[in-house]
Design a protein around this nucleic acid. Structure first.
Lengths: 250, 250
DNA sequence: CAGTGGTCTAGACCACGCT
DNA sequence: GCGTGGTCTAGACCACTGG
């Protein structure tokens, strides 16, 4: 059960981080330095460091500044105050719950919306209980905080619900009590499904994720009268920037 | 912006999986085969395949059977039916909500409990609002489904609450309405904090995780009378085996 | 046994980004 | 400019595992 050579290097660097000899943001010793220190080839050192990257402990590094110890400072995302209007600063100004929550934490939120009509993707038609081939309205958001990407959030509405409503507008539409209630389809019940996985290459690019950053996929289905789904929202939230919170009454 | 050689191999294999030419459980072409096919060295092929491993698309492989396309079949874990007794088959038999939920999905749950008294770890004393140096009772569970590890779940209780109660017993203690209510400390309110990260080496070993499997860390704090914390439970749930669900009334 | 991946070496050249 | 990591090669030997 002897450790391989790269594991020795791995243990060395991981140990320095766990014992706080290397702290958040510190530069990790270079590849040539570690190769000399442990008397192994540079490739063996790289095996160890790439493992630490993929475990999220250190960043990949470019140029003169090498690898550094990764920093985590996730923002809290409340999933229960959301939808209830309890956090709105001033609903008439179009401030939504996510933005308000971010501002409360002293950060600057931003999001752009793009709206389109499309054939319901397989998962979406399942969530919304639509027949294959049904049309849906899609509202996509890319959310940033202090100009850094934080979430990808996409909502889909059955076409019959969103037609000729503010949901078709290419801008943020926040209303007191929620936009769906305002157009006659209030949500009575919500079902949240949370899964955890590694990002797709597209998600990695849009969210500027470094190697070793998993994402949380949060799907919220809203049911209206007669328990019929009126919308589904899928949010991709990188693990290094998000903490999800539910407050429940027993 | 030309793709490097290993990215060409990466695109090839990822494409085959996305187009379903390779399906769940299928064997991935061998390293030597891909090296010959793309006219690159074996190490270049390995760079591509290891990237796909860490993205969770393929397994590492040993022996005659090489790498295979990874399969995902997560079990649903309901976080709201839990705690309310609505799912208990027969509380007197000691079947808890997690076990009942797994059985509903046609699988065989199992868990062992180990109990100990310890100095509250920093995070725990913060969650339970205890002074540094306070003692806590710790109940650790390793949960398995069909003999495969599924979750690591650890609860901590302030020592003054758990002393001389069934919470000190080295076995599963389920009671109608919940064990805390039965010993005079019912939970009035819950706060769930969910974070997403890569596993520690210890977690990887105990849960038998392959490279590229992120975990969900679910922390539930229960507050009793006067909003004082009475327990905290931390559950580590691998992303390839778990789907968390919340049902919310608006 | 035969073929798979795991480990390891000793080189090489290049792109990047501070100073 | 110079040191960092990124890419790539052509070998070698070993451990594991299914047939």
């Amino acid at each position: 059960m002897s450790r391989s050579r790269w594991e020795v290097v791995y243990d060395d660097v991981r140990g320095r981080i766990e014992r706080a000899e290397l702290r958040d943001g510190d530069q990790v010793p270079g590849e040539l330095h570690l190769a000399e220190l442990h008397q192994v080839s540079r490739n063996t050192v790289r095996t160890a460091l790439m493992r630490l990257e993929q475990e999220g402990l250190i960043t990949a590094g470019r140029g003169r500044l090498g690898r550094t110890v990764r920093t985590y400072a996730p923002l809290t995302w409340s999933l229960t105050a959301y939808e209830r209007g309890t956090r709105r600063d001033d609903p008439t100004r179009g401030v939504d719950d996510w933005s308000a929550g971010v501002k409360e934490q002293g950060r600057e939120p931003h999001q752009e919306v793009t709206v389109s009509i499309e054939l319901a993707p397989p998962h979406v038609s399942e969530w919304l209980q639509l027949e294959p081939g049904a049309m849906v309205v899609r509202r996509s958001r890319r959310r940033t905080v202090d100009n850094r990407p934080y979430q990808l959030s996409t909502s889909w509405f059955p076409e019959r619900i969103a037609r000729d409503t503010p949901l078709m507008e290419q801008r943020d539409v926040a209303m007191p009590g929620g936009i769906l209630a305002a157009i006659g389809h209030p949500q009575r019940r919500l079902r949240d499904e949370i899964t955890v996985r590694m990002p797709t290459p597209d998600e990695s690019r849009l969210l500027e994720l470094s190697v070793g950053t998993p994402v949380c996929q949060h799907v919220r289905i809203g049911y209206g009268a007669d328990d019929v789904p009126v919308r589904v929202m899928q949010t991709i939230a990188p693990g290094d920037r998000n903490r999800l919170v539910y407050e429940l009454e027993v």
